[in-house]
């Protein structure tokens, strides 16, 4: 046996599993989206765009994912910077703070938000007591609830992406900028931020993809009225059992995500998140 043979022997079980258990199912899903009783058809896609209902779901999905990504970037950047530059003890605590929610089941985190945002929940009640909103004001089943819940779920991905990049920056670059008279915030803007762009882009693409394709948090916090694309897929698979239509919706989601993921993989995004 040669070294080469041994290497491929080590890779074989994984490649086989990925081919049969990962690539083949995706191919099957794509095939089913254009499959009808008389062979090839685009009727499922035509149905998606024939009236305003599904395009509005698509639009809501993109819109919410954009807001969630923007908020994650704005909160994630300072957090990642602090984590990259603070002392090791504080860093360990902050890493735990970021990883604990990441490792907790999404179902449980969403449950926590359901309790806080419901009509009798702490957050909704506080907002009412402060005099905002009507007497029946609640955050549950609003787009705000979806955004709050999703930002908490996805912020860790953004922070970890950024921390990897900022941690590798040479602190002397910042010192050089400071000695030449730049203020701290000026250094942030003209030195750290431009150099952290790869991490910011990789993190944003990852967060956007995950936000656009999640349905557990949106369906529990947003309710049936505020449907998103992934939720529509789930409903079609489990309730209406219209698999061709579900496959077409998933294909639309897949196409959008593929457009985003190709540049992500080019950026070497697999090193982060």
């Amino acid at each position: 046996m040669t070294d080469r043979r041994e290497t491929w022997l080590l890779l074989a079980p994984g490649l086989l599993l990925l081919a049969l258990g990962f690539l083949l199912p995706i191919a099957r899903m794509l095939a089913l989206s254009v499959d009808g009783p008389d062979g090839f058809t685009l009727s499922a896609f035509a149905r998606f765009f024939q009236d305003g209902y599904y395009p509005s779901i698509l639009w809501r999905t993109v819109w919410l994912a954009s807001i969630i990504t923007a908020i994650c970037a704005v909160i994630g950047f300072p957090m990642a910077y602090i984590m990259a530059r603070c002392n090791p003890t504080l860093r360990l605590w902050l890493v735990m703070l970021v990883i604990l929610p990441l490792m907790t089941s999404v179902v449980i985190r969403t449950f926590g938000w359901m309790v806080l945002l419901s009509r009798s929940g702490l957050v909704s009640r506080t907002i009412r007591d402060m005099g905002f909103g009507g007497r029946s004001f609640q955050l549950m089943q609003t787009e705000t609830a979806i955004v709050i819940g999703m930002v908490q779920v996805l912020l860790p991905f953004m922070v970890l992406s950024l921390m990897g990049v900022i941690g590798r920056l040479d602190p002397r670059l910042e010192e050089a900028a400071r000695t030449m008279g730049c203020t701290f915030l000026g250094t942030m803007r003209s030195v750290v931020l431009p150099l952290a762009v790869p991490g910011l882009v990789a993190g944003s693409l990852l967060v956007f993809t995950l936000a656009a394709s999640s349905f557990v948090t949106p369906s529990l916090l947003g309710g049936a009225r505020l449907e998103v694309l992934a939720g529509a897929v789930y409903k079609n698979v489990t309730q209406t059992l219209d698999w061709n239509f579900a496959a077409a919706q998933a294909t639309i989601l897949f196409a959008g995500i593929a457009l985003i993921l190709v540049p992500y993989l080019r950026l070497g995004g697999n090193r982060h998140g």
Binding site: L24, I26, M29, L210, S214, V237
Partner: peptide, 12 residues
């Protein structure tokens, strides 16, 4: 995202 793979695996 695992939803894409999930629906494909179920169908296959």
């Amino acid at each position: 995202p695992s939803i894409i793979f999930a629906i494909g695996l179920l169908m296959l």
